[in-house]
Design a protein around this nucleic acid. Structure first.
Lengths: 211, 211
DNA sequence: GTCTATAGGACGATAGAC
DNA sequence: GTCTATCGTCCTATAGAC
């Protein structure tokens, strides 16, 4: 905290640069919120940063690189939302409910990132493997939660199969996409579709209930 | 069939023009299938028609007018899919199942139109009231089918409320959007998510089952 | 890292000849 | 209805001075 030695200049520069990178992404999200997810351009993004377009290329080598960084940030945040919510939950169904509710909330609170992650509305953009990695990890966490629920006798084994995962995705993203398409201005508490999130989770457990 | 009088020239011209209008929309759908839903431009569309851009403006006054016509065509076809399927079905739940399955099939068979109708991926485009009209009508048909199901004692009254409609939309479009986002190349019979369509309809009736 | 200047294109749309 | 020609705007991206 009171280390007398000043930070090495190279470190300062690196840190400053990373701050700028993050700020670019902040501005990008703001722009997408007003002009649409596909309305992001390097020219406008530079303008929002208060710099000229060539300067922006010092931070991101291309427009697609910005999209990829946004995609990566969204995946990280979404995964983090799950982890934070699950930290204090019991394994199995309780954990699954907490995690899914948390990522649902995250998605409606960050509509432009959610659209980028789940709808892929930008033509010609395919996320890099690195940007996609958190999604793979999250998928595994869901699978584990389902397996725990089966092991604890909360649901039957069919819940933890590919069909079970597909049904869960249908229910979860059904809520989110209906919300984003029809009433994105409402928050999680006041949405007509988000209200159905608890309902569909209940339907899922009932579909795989132990007799 | 063998009317001797030739068609009036004005009628011929009108008919020819309408054929061309439809052909433009056909080409537009093809272009969107390859270049993405937002990748449709007047320049490329003219090229696909084998004409120059100014000629295209004789048929559609603007790029947004093309989008609107596509939106209108999609809504008409989707509504028609429901009507055709429901024609031979008994009122109530049987009718609801037949109609929803038919519009689901239509959506995955026409992915670009479905994206245009249900995801609204084109920035700055808001459909005209006329183009939207079939969607309003279809909404009413769904409501009626639900009301019939209630009247026949197939489900309890809560199924025909706003929440019931919202739940139904979540389930239906959840299947469709997961299919379009993850495995659009598969057809209705082979998709992992489309397989869940019958499942979710069953979940809906169970959620509102008469005790 | 910032800028000016610019290349090189695609786009929507219009004017006006045929 | 078709075309050529064109306007004005926006875009991605680079060269090169400071």
């Amino acid at each position: 905290m009171h280390d007398a030695r000043p930070e090495r200049p190279a470190d300062r520069r690196t840190r400053r640069r990373e701050q700028t990178l993050e700020e670019v992404l902040d501005r990008a999200v703001e722009l997408m919120a007003t002009d649409g997810v596909a309305g992001l351009t390097m020219t406008r993004l530079a303008g929002a940063m208060g710099i000229r377009p060539p300067s922006l290329y010092k931070y991101f080598p291309s427009a697609l690189a910005v999209q990829d960084a946004l995609f990566a940030r969204g995946q990280r945040e979404n995964l983090e939302a799950w982890r934070a919510a699950v930290a204090d939950a019991a394994p199995g169904l309780a954990s699954l409910r907490a995690g899914m509710r948390a990522t649902g909330r995250w998605a409606v609170a960050h509509p432009v990132l959610a659209q980028l992650l789940f709808w892929r509305p930008v033509p010609g953009f395919t996320p890099s493997e690195a940007a996609f990695a958190p999604a793979v990890l999250l998928q595994e966490l869901v699978r584990t939660a389902l397996a725990d629920a089966v092991a604890q006798g909360e649901v039957v084994a069919s819940a933890a199969t590919g069909d079970g995962m597909a049904l869960l995705a249908v229910l979860h993203f059904g809520v989110i996409s209906q919300h984003l398409a029809n009433e994105p201005q409402l928050d999680w508490e006041h949405g007509h579709f988000t209200r159905q999130h608890d309902v569909v989770l209940e339907l899922f457990t009932r579909a795989h209930a132990v007799r």
